[in-house]
Design a protein around this nucleic acid. Structure first.
Lengths: 207, 207, 207, 207
DNA sequence: CATGAATGAGGTTTCATTCAT
DNA sequence: CATGAATGAAACCTCATTCAT
């Protein structure tokens, strides 16, 4: 009983393997630096097959961002609406955001490249905006829950505090990525400020 | 009375004009996307001349970053050590940082590209680190002055608060650049938190 | 009551549908520009099936020309040996030749491409020559009949006049195709000159 | 005393050499079959230089047609307004038109390809129409002169007869190119018909 | 100092073709 | 009979670079 074509032994479709390879390559070489030949080698397929599935280089880039955004948002919503106390879920969101930076797979660089590209291509910009609102929504959900059950008592509406947290998270990521020291402590401290009296232990920076 | 060669009517050297064009092109097309031919057109000179002055593409990129960093840091130090109360000078630094984002000349995109490139090319990374410390030093100077004369009473050493401020500024810039709303208010609010009891009016966005 | 495989509801074989699509594509994109994938889409079948029936691209092109030539010649002979006076049959041949040009289906472009291709590929050239002689033969048949019954009194043998008529028809087609005005009148006039005292009304252009 | 760059020993510009090579290649392989690499080899330059001068493949094709049309029309006007009796000049025009076909350099195939391409690309169509009118104008000029001095006495206005002659010339060319026999005689005969009582000896077909 | 002709390396794109299902 | 995944050859295109003028 042979498996269908376009699928490998682990059940992953070839298309998905190419997409994953593209995301790695974008992270590694940048949006403009990604080469189709590298993607093909990374995915273990021929160059022609990459084009068979995605047509043009641009098509592949868009598909990669589309998929990336989807996966990212789904995960954010899963955490926000998942089990655990609001405090645990808030920590979960931040931990996951920070994990991206520390991961060796270059996820963070991928998003950076995405943002830069979105500055230049309006089509990507819309998708980007949607992703941003999704994250903010996830924070808002958790904050509302926390206020409702009395575990959070922030200075402002969930909306306002969610914005502050995302800003802080972005700044932390940016600085961490750039190699500056002390960024983690700031995040720790600032979250405590914003979401009194929540006491959270942030994930220690992995290396 | 002829003017020296390599200098135009306004006294700007040709070299400087090329450098400025390169920075615009980096901001517009990205580090990897900058093309020598475009720089030449933008600077109003021939392609050959660009190479005559800077040798290779890499040489031009390095020169651009070098010049950019220098100018940037000089200005930060001028503000930090300049006239005015510590509070005025702190506001000046932030205002200037934010001004970069709003400017239509793409300064901010230029730095973004710089940072991304620094991730991949160690040589640039050093220069980047130096620039970062320069900014942090500027904040530290102002904060120390403010604590000394009693106008600031932050929770922590000038060093720590400077880090927090730079993080916050970076996060704000990142989010502003990405088009998110509400980032300005956060900066306003957060500065007040960090540097009690300073009351500062941040520059309104837009121009 | 199942119909045989390779046949659609209207009784057209799949092979024929592909062939028709190929002829449309040759007319539209040219001999060198015809793409198998386009033919497949046009015919509403998969790429693989096109190759299943015709093997290679060259095979499809040859089959298309073969079929085109056959159909064309059969029709010319039908008209030449059909009912009606010699004058009516002559008009019929010309009308049909001109109809090709005005048809929106690109028949004429198809033949043009055929001729050009025949210049470069000797194999096609033979088939082309055969087609040409077929047309000329059709004219010759009609002219002979007309001379026999006294309705034509040309300056020369049927052979010579047939050549002149085909030349004129080709020239008219060429110029009509290229969008020049006045070509129809020429044909009208010249036919009258060649085939005195036949008076013929040519088909008005357009439909 | 070195010669300027971009010029060869005979004073021909490199650009012109590439253009001539392109016209040869179009004639040989067709509009769609022309390959930049072949053009480069034929012109004796690198592939890159072809693109340096003409940008894209399309740019080269357009430049080739533009130049071809210009040269062609200039020559037609030179003959039409040149020295000699109207009869000599008319013969000259036809001789030159036919010479194109017989020339081994493929001029005629070039124009054929041009016309086919013009069917598909509206931009070329305009240029094509202009060329056609130029030829017709040349014939008209000669015919008018011949009528004025009494050497021609055609059935119709110079305009009408010019159209007929161009049609006949095109048809003859088309059939000659396709290898049919007897086309020359037709032209000879038909010209005599149209332009009575001109007696002209057409150029014998070269091989 | 200044120009642009000329090159070639390296990428993307297009397609016919093969073949497993 | 029918499909489309997978490949690879061959084209086009972009650009940094060299160098004669």
């Amino acid at each position: 009983m042979a498996r269908p074509r376009g699928t490998d032994a682990s059940g992953t479709t070839t298309r998905t393997r190419i997409l994953a390879a593209a995301m790695r390559q974008i992270a590694e070489r940048g949006y403009g630096g990604m080469r189709l030949a590298d993607v093909a080698v990374d995915a273990g397929v021929s160059l022609g097959l990459v084009q068979h599935y995605f047509g043009t280089r641009t098509g592949l880039l868009q598909a990669a961002f589309e998929t990336g955004t989807e996966v990212n948002l789904r995960r954010a919503r899963e955490i926000a609406h998942g089990p655990g106390t609001p405090s645990e879920r808030l920590t979960g969101l931040i931990r996951w955001g920070c994990a991206d930076i520390d991961a060796a797979d270059g996820s963070w660089e991928f998003w950076f490249e995405f943002w830069l590209a979105a500055l230049r291509e309006p089509e990507l910009s819309l998708r980007n905006r949607a992703g941003d609102q999704g994250w903010q929504g996830a924070f808002r959900t958790v904050l509302s829950d926390g206020i409702a059950d009395g575990s959070f008592a922030p200075d402002g509406t969930p909306e306002q505090v969610a914005t502050k947290l995302v800003t802080l998270l972005d700044g932390t990521m940016l600085r961490r990525m750039l190699g500056s020291q002390g960024a983690d402590d700031d995040l720790d401290w600032a979250v405590a400020q914003f979401v009194r009296p929540a006491v959270m232990s942030l994930p220690p920076r992995g290396d």
